[in-house]
Design a protein around this nucleic acid. Structure first.
Lengths: 193, 193
DNA sequence: CTATTTTCTTAATCTACATTATTGTTTTCG
DNA sequence: CGAAAACAATAATGTAGATTAAGAAAATAG
């Protein structure tokens, strides 16, 4: 069964009894995504938290010129959602799609809130991973304000070594905030230093 | 008593019984900060969550050239902390200081976790405000990637109208990620359009 | 109230990064 | 497999925003 990974993921922060595990997995639905297939589009309402058990997703928006800007990569063992839309149940601005053939487990907002109510441990779990995500995003805000493109690329390599050889460079460029052409230049300098 | 504001702040998301309110406020300590006085410095361990009841704080870091980059303004009715340091209890990279004479209420990490344990409602409260902060920070990451300085300034004016006339421009520049000189130029264009 | 410090404006010059264009390479897929 | 599409490298040119400098205005302190 494909639930080992998500139960392990939760187990990093809270301990679940067998019947709590059973209850939890009973709420999950599975969904396969082919490469480039969308889990969510701009202006849709996000109704689920998604946990990646295979493959890799990304969430991004489009600017007024149609360029993509990547908010998050979600490889295996990561959670993803348009948090603004999920919380407010208003149309969001994010696209979420698959960078390769992938599989996700979905937990609906309604079930998630019911879980919080029935078993506060789950609220603790999501409180903790939300805190961790907040720390990472605050770090990224400050990095974008205080580091050069060269330094941001170095940080990315350091922080996500497994993604570097896995993702097309243009995706990394759209994450650190430079054009693919400029990243190509940066990498050349990198090699010679 | 100066606890009305913080109880109201909490009351926006959860309902507390009188004895829960009493328990909560008994854990708070108050601290006054003169303008420019620090609540936290780089390399210190952050041991408290802070709630501003008077004045305005800011959290920022220094880049390799000694320039300040502002992560957050915390006016009256806002929470602030170095979340990375608070969670990990490792030395952090943030400075937190007062932009004007201010007063904060402090809740220690230990007491906060005890509260979570004794009364899950508090965990819900902090889960919710952490989610809201995450949404705001993700929005800011994408704005920094996809908007021009002009547009980021316009967003700031729209999102924090009360801060615009309250803060020195150089602080706003250090928040949106431009030099004060360039912001001055932007504002001139703004006026003539 | 005055002196000092901090903040704001303006303008000239500079640079990190964007844009555009071209060519070569790799991946995808029928 | 072979054709098409996506990706990457390189280089010439363009520009948003940085840097430097200097003076004016405002806030602060003594």
């Amino acid at each position: 069964m494909p639930y080992d990974l998500i139960l392990q993921n939760i187990g990093k922060h809270i301990h679940l009894e067998p019947q709590e595990e059973a209850r939890f997995v009973s709420l999950l639905t599975s969904r396969e995504l082919k490469k480039k297939q969308f889990l969510l589009r701009e202006n849709e309402v996000c109704r689920h938290s998604a946990f990646v058990i295979q493959g890799c997703l990304r969430s991004y928006n489009l600017d007024e010129n149609g360029f993509e800007h990547i908010l998050q990569f979600a490889p295996t063992d990561w959670w993803t959602a348009d948090m603004y839309s999920l919380i407010s149940q208003q149309p969001g601005s994010l696209y979420i799609d698959a960078l390769e053939d992938s599989e996700v487990l979905l937990l609906s907002k309604k079930d998630q809130e019911q879980l919080y109510h029935d078993c506060p441990k789950f609220e603790r779990f999501f409180r903790i991973i939300t805190e961790n995500s907040l720390v990472a995003n605050r770090r990224r805000v400050l990095d974008n304000l205080s580091l050069s493109a060269q330094q941001r690329y170095a940080m990315f390599c350091q922080h996500y070594p497994s993604l570097i050889n896995h993702l097309p460079q243009k995706q990394i460029a759209a994450y650190i905030g430079v054009t693919p052409e400029f990243l190509s230049k940066l990498r050349k300098e990198f090699r010679h230093s």
